[in-house]
Write a protein that binds this DNA or RNA. Sequence first.
RNA 1: GGCCCUAUCGUCUAACGGUUAGGACAUCGGCUUUUCAAGCCGGCAAUCCGGGUUCGAUUCCCGGUAGGGUCACCA
Length: 499
Amino acid sequence: MEENVKKIRVRFAPSPTGSIHIGNLRTALFAWLFARNNQGAFLVRVEDTDRKRLEEDSLKKIFEALKWVNLSVDEGVFLNENNEISQKGELGPYIQSERLEIYQKYIQELLENGKAYYCFCSEERLEEVHKKQQAEKQPLMYDKKCRDLDSEEVQTKIKNGEKYVIRMKIPENEIVKFNDKVFGKISVKTEIIDDQVLIKADGFPTYHFAVVVDDHLMEISHIFRGEDWIPSTPKHVLLYNFLGWEIPTFVHLPNVLGEDKKKLSKREGAVSVEDFRKKGYCPEALINFLALIGWNPKTEQEIFSLEELIKKFSIEGLNKAGGVFNYQKLNWFNKEYIKVMSEDLFEKNVLEFLSEDLKEKILGNSSAFKKILPVLKERIEKFEDISEMAKAGELEYYFSQPEYEIEKILWKEEKDLNQAKVHLEKIISSLEGVTSFKEEEIKTKIWDYATEQGRGSVLWPMRYALSGKDKSPDPFVLAEILGKEETIKRLQYAIGKIN
RNA sequence: GGCCCUAUCGUCUAACGGUUAGGACAUCGGCUUUUCAAGCCGGCAAUCCGGGUUCGAUUCCCGGUAGGGUCACCA
C-alpha cells in the first residue's frame, strides 16, 4: 500500500558495452509501460563501472534504439534534439562514472559501521582458492581471509600502497527474505552469500553497490530487471538494511529464451535491437511481440499499439516462466503492421532496401513503382524481403523486358508453342481495344476467351510473357502495372521468340 | 556441485477448484485460382510424473523428474 503514496519511479540502466539486447529492450519496455500506466517517471541511468568493457559508440546505439521504438525518457540520460547524449533531472548525475564521490561517501559509512572491510588478496590467490573449491565441489566463494584484519594492519598495508578492494561483510546465520512482485517470497541463508566486492581495485564500485546506492538516491520505487538477478538480490537487500534504507519493490522478469530454451544469445541470430532494425522490422511490431512474451493482457486481442499497451499493462499479468523468442510469430506481427502501414512510409522503407541501380530504374518509372507497392505490401513480412526479392529477380521484370526460355511459356505439360502463339495474338488484339488499361477491364476482355480455351493454357503464357517467372502476381495486375504499350510489346516479344 | 527459480498444444499463452481445457503463431487439409502471395473455412495438437487435500483438481500442498538461472575486482 505504500506504493499508492509513493510516486512510481522506474529506471532502465544499460551498460554501454555494446548495442542493446532484445531482452533488455523488453525489460525497459515493461518498466516504461508500468511508469506510463501509473503516471510515474521513467529514468535512464548509465552503468559504466566496468571500464574494461566500455564501447565507444554504444551509448548512441542504445539511445537510438530507444528512440526508434518510441520509449521516451523523463529523467536521466537521454538523446537531445541534436542527437547528443545529455542529462536532465534533479537527482543526477545519472552516469555512474560521474558519481564516484557519492559511492565513496557510502562505502566509508559501511566501513565505519563494520559492514564492509578492506581485502588485500591478490587475484592469483583468489584464483587458487577457487580452484581448490572447484576440486572439492564446494561453492566458489571468497574464503574471508581479510575479513578480520585489525585496523592497524589495514592502515599500514594501505600506506604501503598495497592494492585492495572493499568487500561486504555478510552477517552469519541469518536468513535474508524478500518479496518479488512476480516470483513471490524468496529467502536465502546468509551462509551461501559471498562477501561481495563493493569497490574494485580501480576505485570504481561494482554493480551490486552502485545499483543500491543509485536506486535509493534516485528514489526508484520499482526495480524491473531480468530474473538472472534474483540470486544476487539478497546482497542488495542486505545493503539496503546496512544503510538503513527502504527496500524498493522488486519486479524480476522471466527470461527471453532462444529456440534451445536457454537465455537468448547471439547464437540465435539477431539479438540486438539494431539487428532487427536492419532486417526491416517495424518498431511497433517488435514492441507488440516483445510485450506478449511473459506478459498477457487477459484478452484474446493480439495487436496492441503502444497506447493500448500502456492502458492494459499491469504487473499481475506478468508470468514466471521464461518465454521462447519465436521469429515466426514476430514475422506475423510485422506483416500485420505492414498491412496497415501508410503508403508513404511503406514506399520509404522499400526504397531503403533496394540496391542503387534498381533504385535508378524505379526513379525512371515512378508511376509503375507506385502501382507495384500494393503488390509488394501483400508479399513481404519484413523489408529485408525486398532485397531478397530483388536478388531473386522478382522486381526486375517490372522495369525491363525479362529474359526466359520460350518453352517455359507453356502451361504445365503442354507442348504446342504454336497454340500459345495463337493465344497471345488473340490477347493482343483484345487488349488493343481496351481504353482504360485497368486490371478489371483487362480481365473482362480476356476472361471469356480464357475460360473457353482453358484458363491455364491462355493465362499462364500471358503471365509468363510479362514476368518471365514461374511465380508472379496475376497477369491482369502485371498488365496494368506495365501499361498498355509495354504489355503488348512483351506479348509480341514472346511471339517473336516462338517464330 | 551449492543455492535459487520454473513447468498447459511444437511456440506465445487463457482458464485465479467444476470448461467438450479457449485463443494466436507454426503446421496440415479444403475453398478461391493460370503460378505465387493474400483471403476464407476446417483439421491435428497440451495440463511432466507420483502422492495427498477436496464431493471435485490444470488450478492448493508435498515429493520426484526435467529444464533454466546463478555462483567475478562483468553487468
